[in-house]
């Protein structure tokens, strides 16, 4: 038997073990090659599909690269003003308490422009899920410094590296949020290896399940890459992230009540 016929025998519906979930639309993603957003979208879509809550889920998309998230996941979406996704999600979940409401925000949107909104939404203990994608840079606008940019990291606006005396210190927003009594589940995950993706999926599922119990906000930070902003290839970006971001943004669950 030749190799090709053997492969053709393996490729049939009975042997299928992994395919794109139906919740992910066929639109080609606009993200750069290797962008972590794609993996996170996929994980969220898979969890919504597995929990069979497609009709009960409302997402709030941010301003940033993931502004077009509503083109990719087949659920109801709203588009918030820059940084104001938690405010919109608050209104949505209060008006429709039976729905699963989540926001999907980047570090520019959540940690900088929407810092006040997220902190107060967390403090109020809104019954929503927040996905915070942290790649330590403003990706969409061309790689400028974000509050989460690491000390010494070169960006478009810190060409000699972030200088804490001039640009301030790197902000660990997730640690700040874990201190607030309104949050119930606060965790930091990544999505660079198959094992990390599986862990992230468990965390996403837990966060959505928490929504039904109405005991506070679930917050998931995902440490991701921005190969265009960092000026590295996707695989180099993952290595850079492991070397530089993981020691500072330590993965793990900070709070689980």
């Amino acid at each position: 038997m030749t190799a090709t016929t053997e492969i053709n025998k393996i490729i049939n519906e009975d042997n299928l073990v992994y395919k794109k979930t139906n919740l992910l639309l066929d639109n080609e993603m606009h993200y750069c090659p290797g962008c972590t957003h794609g993996v996170i979208h996929k994980v969220i879509a898979e969890v919504i599909d597995e929990m069979d809550i497609q009709n009960e889920t409302i997402g709030v998309s941010p301003v940033g690269c993931s502004v077009l998230a509503y083109n990719y996941i087949d659920i109801d979406w709203q588009e918030a003003a820059h940084g104001r996704a938690p405010a919109l999600a608050t209104a949505t979940s209060r008006l429709m308490p039976e729905k699963y409401v989540f926001t999907y925000q980047g570090d520019g949107d959540l940690a900088s422009i929407g810092c006040a909104e997220i902190i107060h939404a967390c403090n109020r203990g809104e019954n929503i899920v927040v996905f915070f994608v942290n790649n330590a840079i403003y990706g969409m606008t061309g790689g400028q410094m974000a509050p989460t940019t690491l000390e010494g990291q070169v960006t478009a606006t810190t060409p000699y590296g972030r200088n804490t005396a001039l640009n301030g210190h790197t902000m660990k927003i997730t640690e700040m949020i874990a201190l607030l009594p309104g949050t119930r589940y606060v965790t930091r995950q990544s999505a660079e290896t198959p094992a990390a993706v599986r862990k992230l999926k468990k965390a996403v599922r837990k966060a959505f399940e928490n929504t039904t119990e109405k005991k506070g906000l679930s917050f998931i930070e995902i440490v991701g890459t921005c190969s265009s902003g960092w000026k590295l290839t996707p695989t180099q970006s993952n290595e850079w992230m492991k070397e530089n971001m993981f020691p500072f943004y330590q993965l793990g669950t900070l709070k689980d009540e």
């Binding site: 049939n12 042997n15 299928l16 992994y18 794109k20 992910l24 080609e28 993200y31 962008c35 999505a191």
Partner: peptide
Amino acid sequence: LVCPDTVITVYR
């Protein structure tokens, strides 16, 4: 799992 564009289907 790691494909950001979910273009891979796997059979086993």
